[in-house]
Design a binder for these strands. Structure first.
Length: 584
DNA sequence: GCCGTTTTCGGCCCGACTGTTTTCAGTCG
């Protein structure tokens, strides 16, 4: 593969820009939708879509047809797409920034541009302050004020940034508790939306509820101390915004429609759109209120979600799978391939990656062991950082030898759990490790991770990683892509080549469960399992409390369609030990 | 622009809210 192969993220950005510019250009909405859908597919694809296109196979991906494949090829071969260049001539780049402001879409952006020459957020601010916006037919003073507020919010640093799943979940649970205290006593409130699907990063909180006093519940949300502003509370619910910039949607349903509402509000948008399209082919129309049968004119109301999917000829689809990644076809009762029996937290038998005082952890071996026992584990690998980690946390070879002794001593005293002597060894830029093999041989479990030199080229980074994967004493690769949720892109890496090497060598790849990492990301974890790679889910805990991070890794595994058979640390240690490549 | 157990052409999910209107368009999820 070419060293400078076009990255999926850059390709997806180009497709998103095509969507934006086509929208500005007034193209039929389905074309815009097609570009956005294609961009999403490319962004999620675990393999290089540009490389696929070169082989004429990108159009095998759902949502990518002959036309978009041609554009991908043009971009990878000439660095640009003719249609994109042409649209860029007509619409200044500032228009896209205006279009992204809440409450302003393509139509109004174009109106502002054609009527007032407004071509940037700053130009919009000037026009609004001079009250020229309200003079445009179709706009008014309310819109002018809303535009100013949107501009203001947009300049606040990180105003619209997403938060990681645990943060969002905790906030959502607090709100539910506050609503249960302040709202009507009969209210049953559940968390829906992207939190329920256990995504990596959350932009808003969706709540659904049943109560006999819906207005009172909606009013209670609008009145919470944490709410900065809210729409008009009604019997249907309310939309509000917290002081921290999170948007919160509450919707209320009748009890016999609760399943319809929960399904609708859990999403994803793409899942719902695909579900409804499939329903239309059966002459059924799905909404949050029920399923209308076109022929009888009757509407089926569902008290629970299972009934919604059953009415459409499908098995219940776990929320984590609702991303329009093939789950509808798999769930079909007639002719579907079946949904996976997803892994659960209780399937996990041990944790293979954690830190102690020996490096940058905040607890002793004994404390971490006690924590792991509380988790119900049968084993725990102590894997402190290695000889060149830096930040004052280096573990010299001699220090590691002493640490191994301490782990052995501690293990001898513990009945309930097996402590494994391990290390999280640095993969140096050339792919070698920073301990000698003689030392690694004494360890029960070796995790190899990249912690330095992130900005290498794709080919060099792939060679580095494959060399580590093929090392006979490396059991697992830690946080394989190096990405951090909402903070850092993955390093340039040919994941396909890494998966091939890992499957051949028998090296485990980690799903790091730290909620800021969740690495492998779920689409990549799914592709790895499909390539025959065995995975492990590790907490990477640096203190006792973060051993519980395992749940976020399991959530990623579920989103990756994994069963307990795909994840090696669902096995007891004797069986897992025998699976290590050095035991073969 | 994509796609096919109604279709290779003509469809393509559904509804709430807001602000601007006086019956609706735009935006959002």
């Amino acid at each position: 593969m070419a060293a400078t192969e076009l990255q999926n993220s850059a390709l997806a950005d180009a497709l998103d820009e095509l969507a934006d510019l086509n929208e500005l250009d007034g193209a039929v909405s389905y074309r815009v939708l097609a570009y956005r859908n294609a961009a999403r597919r490319v962004r999620e694809a675990p393999v290089s879509v540009a490389a696929l296109a070169r082989a004429g196979r990108a159009s095998e991906l759902p949502g990518i047809g002959a036309t978009i494949q041609e554009k991908i090829l043009a971009l990878r071969e000439t660095g640009t797409i003719p249609a994109l260049e042409k649209l860029r001539q007509s619409y200044p780049p500032g228009l896209i920034a205006i279009m992204r402001l809440p409450g302003i879409g393509a139509k109004r952006t174009r109106l502002l541009f054609s009527e007032l020459g407004v071509d940037s957020p700053e130009a919009l601010r000037q026009a609004a302050l001079a009250q020229r916006v309200r003079a445009v037919k179709g706009l008014g003073p309310k819109f002018e004020q809303a535009a100013l507020r949107a501009l203001e919010a947009g300049t606040e640093a990180g105003a619209r940034r997403r938060v990681t799943l645990p943060t969002a979940l905790q906030t959502a649970q607090e709100i539910v508790r506050e609503l249960q205290a302040a709202g009507p006593p009969d209210a049953r409130i559940e968390i829906a939306g992207s939190i329920r699907r256990a995504v990596d990063a959350v932009k808003d909180i969706d709540l659904v509820a049943v109560t006999v006093e819906p207005e009172k519940l909606a009013g209670a949300l609008a009145g919470l101390e944490r709410i900065e502003s809210a729409g008009t509370p009604s019997a249907a619910g309310v939309r509000a915004r917290s002081h921290s910039g999170l948007s919160i949607d509450l919707r209320v349903a009748a009890p016999d429609q609760f399943g319809n509402l929960l399904q609708h509000f859990t999403g994803s948008g793409a899942h719902n759109a695909a579900l409804r399209e499939a329903a239309v082919r059966r002459a059924l129309h799905v909404s949050e209120y029920g399923i209308e049968d076109e022929r009888s004119g009757r509407t089926l109301r569902c008290a629970d979600e299972r009934a919604v999917y059953e009415a459409l000829g499908m098995r219940f689809i776990p929320p984590e799978l609702r991303e329009s990644r093939g789950e509808l076809a798999a769930a079909a009762i007639e002719g579907g391939s079946g949904l996976p029996d997803l892994i659960e937290l209780r399937d996990i038998r041990g944790d293979l990656h954690c830190h102690t005082h020996a490096s940058d952890g905040k607890a002793s071996i004994e404390e971490m062991a006690a924590g792991a026992i509380t988790c119900g584990y049968g084993y725990l690998a102590i894997t402190d950082h290695s000889a060149s980690h830096g930040f004052g946390n280096d573990v010299s070879p001699d220090e590691l030898r002493r640490q191994i002794e301490r782990v052995r001593e501690c293990d001898a005293e513990l009945e309930e759990i097996e402590l494994l002597a391990g290390s999280e060894v640095n993969v140096l830029p050339d792919g070698s490790l920073d301990y000698e093999d003689e030392l690694l041989e004494q360890l029960d479990w070796v995790v190899a991770s990249i912690h330095t030199s992130f900005s290498m080229g794709r080919e060099e980074m792939t060679r580095r990683m494959v060399r580590a994967v093929e090392h006979p004493l490396v059991d697992a690769i830690g946080h394989p892509t190096g990405r951090k949720v909402e903070q850092r892109e993955p390093y340039a890496l040919d994941l396909d080549a890494v998966f091939d090497a890992a499957a051949r060598a028998g090296t485990f790849l980690e799903i790091n469960a730290n909620p800021d990492r969740r690495d492998l990301p779920d689409p990549a974890a799914r592709a790895a399992a499909a390539a025959g790679v065995k995975l492990v889910i590790d907490s990477d805990a640096h203190r006792v409390s973060t051993l519980a991070n395992m749940r976020w890794g399991v959530a990623s595994a579920r989103r990756a369609w994994l069963t307990s058979h795909d994840v090696a640390n669902t096995l007891e240690w004797p069986r897992l030990k025998a699976l290590r490549k050095r035991a073969r």
